[in-house]
């Protein structure tokens, strides 16, 4: 469902000059699979996911999402995805129902169909108690439910989630995890990013380790264990990054 092909993005930064935020990365994610992009802060995860969501345009390479090319038909791509990031807000002066109605309309839903779908979401994500309360009055957990409902309202086959549980307390993070696992069961293709190793291990079928814009390793958790010969997650992660740095040093 997602095929990333030599994707690269560089930014012009006043202080640092040209920044290679994503440096020619390739991988793919199938339907019914959870793929995790794992990497420290500044690794290029957000850049990668924004490129796939067609919010940014690639400097080089391309990708296909749900059969549509991100450069040539970005709108077709956006119709197939649900995009959520952990630090995203929801319009504070609107109620959950109004938020859902707004995003439903942006996704081409209207009339009776939209209303039915909103009711479904309100029920599935247990929003009904506060469905007509302005979102700035809601707790983080309630807001998160609304954010998730907003992401899957139009029933997209592909989910792109950027550190979806970062900054959330344990019960709320749990909400996100369960949602991802349920989505996987229903056959969705899920690409998500995290800097938390445990989360990656618990959720992912396969993991791509990114560091300084490059994909350093790719495989199942077991494959990564094998490769580093380490067992503790922390060690594996550090090892992978170290290998990356050593390789870079050798090249120099």
């Amino acid at each position: 469902m997602i095929r990333v092909d030599n994707l690269a993005k560089s930014f012009h930064d006043k202080k640092r000059g040209i920044v290679h935020a994503l440096d020619h990365v390739s991988f793919d994610v199938k339907a019914g699979e959870i793929f995790g992009l794992l990497g420290p802060n500044g690794a290029g995860k957000t850049t990668c996911l924004r490129l796939l969501a067609t919010i940014l345009k690639p400097t080089e390479g391309t990708a296909e999402v749900g059969g549509a090319d991100i450069v040539r038909s970005p709108e077709a791509v956006r119709r197939q995805i649900g995009f959520l990031s952990g630090d995203m807000g929801i319009p504070a002066r609107l109620t959950p129902r109004e938020v859902l109605a707004f995003f439903g309309k942006l996704n081409g839903l209207e009339g009776e169909k939209l209303r039915r779908r909103i009711d479904e979401m309100v029920e599935t994500f247990e929003i009904s108690d506060f469905a007509n309360t302005k979102t700035d009055k809601l707790s983080t957990g309630m807001k998160q439910k609304v954010a998730i409902a907003r992401t899957v309202l139009h029933d997209p086959p592909v989910l792109i989630l950027d550190e979806p549980s970062s900054g959330l307390d344990v019960p709320t993070a749990r909400l996100i995890e369960n949602f991802m696992l349920r989505a996987k069961e229903s056959g969705k293709c899920i690409l998500f990013s995290t800097h938390v190793m445990e989360e990656a291990e618990y959720l992912c079928d396969r993991i791509g380790v990114v560091h300084q814009g490059k994909l350093k390793a790719l495989g199942t958790m077991d494959e990564l264990r094998e490769r580093t010969g380490k067992h503790r997650l922390r060690e594996i992660f550090l090892d992978l990054l170290e290998i990356a740095e050593l390789a870079q040093g050798a090249r120099k």
Binding site: R50, A53, T54, I55, E75, R78, R79, I81, F83, L84, S85, D87, M88, G89, I90, P91, A92, F103, L106, N107, G108, R150, I160
Partner: peptide, 13 residues
């Protein structure tokens, strides 16, 4: 407030 990105990632032009 970080509410723009979700709109940009929607099919809306």
């Amino acid at each position: 407030r970080r509410t723009l990105e979700a709109v940009l990632a929607s099919p809306a032009g």
